[in-house]
């Protein structure tokens, strides 16, 4: 089966996010004073073949742990794992 997965990588709570702060400054200066926080992060879309959804999730999680995120700074979340038509 072919699957498509989205991995989201965000900085851990408490790790400084200077990029998020700079974007927030821009958002507020555009007049959106109601916005109080912007968190910057990364987004990856992976296409893969796997036996079933469970093994696809295992592989994507392993890749996210080993390569896509740095455990000192970042947390990741695998989301939107869906079977994709080939």
């Amino acid at each position: 089966m072919k699957y498509e997965a989205v991995v989201e990588v965000l900085l851990k709570e408490g790790v400084s996010d200077p990029e998020g702060v700079a974007i927030l400054d821009a958002v507020v200066s555009l007049g959106y004073g109601s916005v109080s926080k912007v968190a910057s992060g990364k987004f990856f879309r992976l296409m893969l073949h796997a036996e079933d959804e469970h093994s696809a999730a295992d592989v994507v999680t392993e890749i996210a742990e080993r390569l896509l995120s740095n455990p000192v700074l970042e947390d990741f979340r695998v989301r939107d794992l869906v079977s994709a038509s080939s």
């Binding site: 790790v15 400084s16 200077p18 990029e19 700079a22 740095n70 000192v72 700074l73």
Partner: peptide, 10 residues
């Protein structure tokens, strides 16, 4: 140990 993150002043 640890990691190098973006400079605080960007």
């Amino acid at each position: 140990p640890g990691a190098l993150q973006k400079n605080s002043g960007l």
